[in-house]
Design a protein around this nucleic acid. Structure first.
Lengths: 334, 334
DNA sequence: AGATTCCAGTCAATCGTTTGAACGACAGAG
DNA sequence: CTCTGTCGTTCAAACGATTGACTGGAATCT
């Protein structure tokens, strides 16, 4: 049952007032002086016709779209799912809606083309690389934008989490359990988060007076983690504990431990960054460091709303970072 | 560096033609007769100014937004992540962009309010319930919509997968391995997918000449699955295999098996519907039935594009459904 | 009584594109 | 030499909402 679209004019006609009045009633314009009974008529007409403002017309006139863009690498990654949820919640609270795009669909440039001009009031880039041609394009587009969980060397427009501290927390936990040979299964060298987590690892090891164990870099994938872990275990004096920079790698790493005929945590303890629901259901349940990912998304949206064109943003989100101890970490074997 | 926005008029001025010409060039209007050199001038001006059409103006005029809505229960659920990816890919191919919303942000009604009128050309509802007040509201909104992976009793507007066949495939696999006491850990009774999978289970058991084992319903959550599995294992003659309707439940179920001091697949085999990346990394690796979820998203978008106002759609997506055999299923113990 | 303020709205320009209709110049037909 | 057709463009009216400026009357002030 296709209804014909209802406009301000229709409402105005029924309520016997000017379109302007209806508009001001809808927008709760405080400068409007109106008799209660007139307002009632307007409201009744809106109700009767089921009027809803036309977004295109409104945004053409006001040049505000009430929509934010959010670009992520992959929807299937629970880390970004968490960020989206936070961003969406905050956007909803502001009456905004989110138009998502992912690198699996097509590149960022192509996404920007489809977005066009005037469709979004701001853009969040979660986990995108540091591509300078991209940044140039963004600056041309005249909308505020921000990187999440990934900083750019060239431009100060990012909010990140305290990955350093998260890494240190994980390492301290292992140290406290009595481990001394603690290796680091790092992320890919081009990833900014990986670098910060590695730095945290090094600092914490240093603080504990321990020598940095072997560090092996791997992709943020199960396969990458498995390969890297196999390497670590093959060493003449394998580590008794491994700090893994990422859950995806950690899952692969756990598999590699089993493949090597060893047992977690008896032979090797594992702790990884980012908590996620399934972590507690893996076997053994994975000890993780929980970071405020949803809060990161929320903060990004909040900032977008108040960002001035040339503002710089270089924020390390203050938020709870906690160790979720499960069964993959234990004191080393005597 | 905030650029001042570039309009058709700016381009027209530089190219020394009318706005209309620029518009027709941009839109590749086939009825336009134009001298090659004029076209060149226009293209050059567009390039020089970096002109991009204003989406609001365009969509006000044409009443097409080049945007689809997609509402899902939860971004963190890998099943919907897969659907989104498919939908996004197809939308991108059509030059459309997707505005997502989830039930974790706020309800569908609230999402529709934020969407407003004229912002989307169609709406996909993935896994939403069969809420009749909602359907009334949708029909009022004058945009085509479709349910994905969930059918509504009241309205024929859905695309679903062949859950019946998927369930049958899983059960047949267990039968082939030699199992005879095959239980079913079903989904919540209000979920449409759960009902179809249960039907498939029953049919397959019947075909195999086996008595229906115990059937226990559980939420599509690890906790629900764990509780239900505990119940199944406590029976005097526990099943040697369980067909689980959903991966989330399956993960909980696996935990419950371990808690009971049993081993998979030695003491009980488990197979679940929907494959997902981590399934291969669980311990033991979970045997699943892979369904074409991305294809479902893709198909939904395709249909939205060609849907007439009063068309009915009741489609069971034809697409590959395959058993991914891993290590959680084996012949029963003698 | 005349001036001023307030009330309760109305008027109309504007945002940037799209698109059916019109138009001047030129060519070819009759 | 006028008429009819193309060619290559231009004209201008939408689309629907917003918002600063304005207005006609009543109430209040001086």
């Amino acid at each position: 049952m296709m209804r014909t679209r209802v406009t301000l004019a229709d409402v105005a006609a029924i309520a016997r007032v000017d379109r302007a009045v209806v508009s001001r009633v809808v927008n709760k314009d405080p400068t409007l002086n109106i008799r209660p009974e007139t307002r009632e008529r307007v409201l009744a007409a809106i109700e009767e016709l089921g009027y809803r403002p036309n977004v295109a017309a409104r945004s053409l006139r006001t040049s505000r779209a009430h929509m934010f863009g959010l670009f992520i690498p992959d929807f299937a990654n629970p880390v970004y799912a968490e960020i989206i949820k936070g961003a969406e919640a905050e956007a909803a609270a502001q009456g905004y809606v989110i138009v998502t795009g992912s690198a699996t669909g097509a590149g960022l440039g192509e996404y920007m083309d489809r977005i066009g001009q005037g469709r979004i009031d701001g853009l969040l880039l979660a986990g995108a690389g540091d591509d300078s041609s991209l940044i140039a394009q963004l600056d041309q587009s005249a909308i505020p934008w921000l990187m999440l969980n990934n900083r750019s060397r060239s431009v100060k427009r990012y909010v990140i989490l305290d990955d350093r501290r998260a890494a240190a927390l994980a390492v301290e936990h292992l140290v406290l359990l009595g481990h001394r040979r603690i290796a680091h299964l790092a992320g890919p060298s081009r990833a900014d988060t990986a670098a910060r987590r590695s730095a945290g690892y090094s600092a914490a090891m240093d603080d504990a007076g321990l020598p940095e164990g072997p560090i092996v870099a791997a992709d943020y994938t199960p396969a990458g983690g498995a390969a890297a872990m196999a390497l670590l275990l093959a060493a003449p004096e394998p580590p008794t504990a491994v700090f893994v920079a990422n859950v995806a790698s950690a899952i692969g790493a756990m598999q590699a431990v089993r493949t090597a005929g060893l047992e977690i945590p008896r032979d090797v303890s594992i702790v990884a960054v980012h908590d996620f629901e399934l972590a507690g259901y893996l076997h053994p349940a994975l000890t993780t460091v929980r970071m405020p990912l949803a809060e990161l998304g929320r903060r990004g949206v909040t900032l977008l709303g108040s960002l001035k064109p040339d503002d710089t943003v270089a924020e390390v989100l203050a938020g709870p970072i906690e160790l979720i101890q499960r069964s993959s970490t234990a004191p080393p074997r005597r």
